[in-house]
Nucleic acid binder design. Structure first.
Lengths: 144, 144
DNA sequence: ACAAATAAGATTAAAATAGTCCTATTTAAT
DNA sequence: ATTAAATAGGACTATTTTAATCTTATTTGT
């Protein structure tokens, strides 16, 4: 339940990798190979990230992508929004939702808005760099 | 994105209604009618809630359901768990998930666990009674 | 016996998600 | 100029998940 779409998951994985690759460009092929992801699907993901200013593309034979935002400044919520996704615990709060049949005397809508905002806050406060930090922390712990 | 399954949404709605109906039993039909939900589908939902000790069923012609937990003590996370659902932002953390191909050197898994726990905390801290309180608050605001 | 309720298995329908295929365009190197 | 390797993007297909329905059985107060 409450699963990220794969496109968001792949995007985060790719961005993590790119944030480690400081020097120069990295191609979709390289990323797909390294992360064992479908090249085709990842291509689409990269295009969306590019269109939304999260990464920058360079075409042609020596082309590839690089981050256009510092990993510390790049928040999970930005990635989510790049895909036009939003946290919508219930339908009536969705992006293109038609009117709910019990809208007028709905006891759920307003409370859910409050919950949603709390969830969004988590994604607003967490950056790609934070994720890598969390990862390193958990791995240090395992060594002891 | 991150939508509650309908069964969880319907469950919360029904539980809110039941928490207002202090006196005695309420039947699935009554709830479905009042909330404009499919009777069939809601029936299933009620059965699950009953099986998991959240409501208590009384069979027979004067039968129905009543809450078996005080609305203040009944948390959103309990409802979620009644349906065997869990917050799983990515597949590899799912209930019955097979092993991920990049498990060993995955940079995402551990960080996501931390995020998930933060999300779960919200559902752990919010009760059915809280929801009604949020609702009333938002409606008072509108009047001014 | 009857009516109105819950219980539950099986099936179907619909929607969302994930993945693939194909073609076009760009650009560095030769 | 040609080629090779990269991104760009439209169209389509497959898969999975979610939602809903259908059917039958059981319970119980009148």
């Amino acid at each position: 339940m409450l699963k990220f779409p794969k496109k968001v998951e792949y995007a985060i994985l790719a961005l993590q990798l790119m944030s480690d690759t400081e020097h120069g460009l990295i191609s979709t092929k390289e990323i797909a190979l390294h992360l064992k992801l479908s090249f085709e699907f990842l291509s689409k993901v990269m295009q969306v990230l590019n269109k939304n200013g999260i990464i920058q593309s360079y075409q042609g034979i020596k082309g590839g992508y690089k981050l256009s935002i510092e990993p510390n400044k790049l928040k999970i919520i930005d990635v989510i929004r790049a895909f036009d996704e939003t946290v919508n615990l219930v339908d009536c709060l969705g992006n293109h939702s038609e009117k709910c049949i019990r809208l007028e005397n709905c006891t759920l809508r307003n409370p859910i808005i409050i919950l949603q905002e709390k969830v969004e806050k988590i994604f607003y406060e967490t950056s790609i760099a934070d994720l890598s930090r969390y990862d390193q922390l958990s791995k240090i712990k395992l060594e002891y």
